[in-house]
């Protein structure tokens, strides 16, 4: 059991309804175990999250996020590529802003990808334990910047 003062990262898994969420269910059905610090949210497609959402998660104390998507099995046209582009841009900004990019991971998990799921959450957990807690105030600043940037961009293109 964990001692009380040992850092236990909070991991959020954003799992697609069509693939990764049933994939995570399959792990439990097989009675395979992973840390209870891993929380899964169901999403139609993670393409819907704006960049600042992720940063807000960090600002609130989520230490790491695993985006478990459908990959090439994505039921929505073009969504996976757009998602990958969002995450690309997010990691660039995290890097520039001083937030460790190991805190975000994008992967494809299918409905029976038990091993892949365990590997991904296991590796993320390990990395986060090495990194320590997320710097919430840095993340908070970055999320405000990201939101402001989106506003500016749209005003510029409107002008």
């Amino acid at each position: 059991m964990l001692s009380d003062n040992k850092f236990n990262p909070k991991i959020l898994v954003l799992a697609t309804e069509a693939c990764a969420y049933p994939g995570a269910d399959a792990v439990g059905k097989a009675h395979l175990e992973y840390g209870a610090n891993v929380y899964v949210f169901r999403v139609p497609s993670p393409v819907l999250f704006p960049e600042d959402f992720y940063l807000r998660c960090y600002a609130k104390g989520i230490d790491g996020i695993l985006i478990a998507a459908c990959g090439s099995d994505c039921p929505y046209r073009g969504a996976y590529d757009r998602l990958a582009a969002h995450i690309d841009s997010l990691t660039t900004r995290m890097k520039a802003g001083g937030l460790e990019i190991q805190r975000i991971r994008l992967t494809a998990i299918c409905t029976v990808c038990i091993k892949a799921y365990l590997k991904e959450v296991g590796q993320l957990d390990e990395q986060l334990r090495a990194l320590g807690p997320v710097n919430q105030s840095v993340a908070g600043q970055l999320q405000h910047l990201a939101r402001a940037r989106m506003r500016d961009q749209s005003q510029m293109s409107a002008a």
Binding site: P44, V47, L48, F49, P50, Y76, A79, R82, M150, Q153
Partner: peptide, 12 residues
Amino acid sequence: VGCGACVAVCPT
């Protein structure tokens, strides 16, 4: 279809 691709980019 509710994929939400539009959501991520809305400035407001």
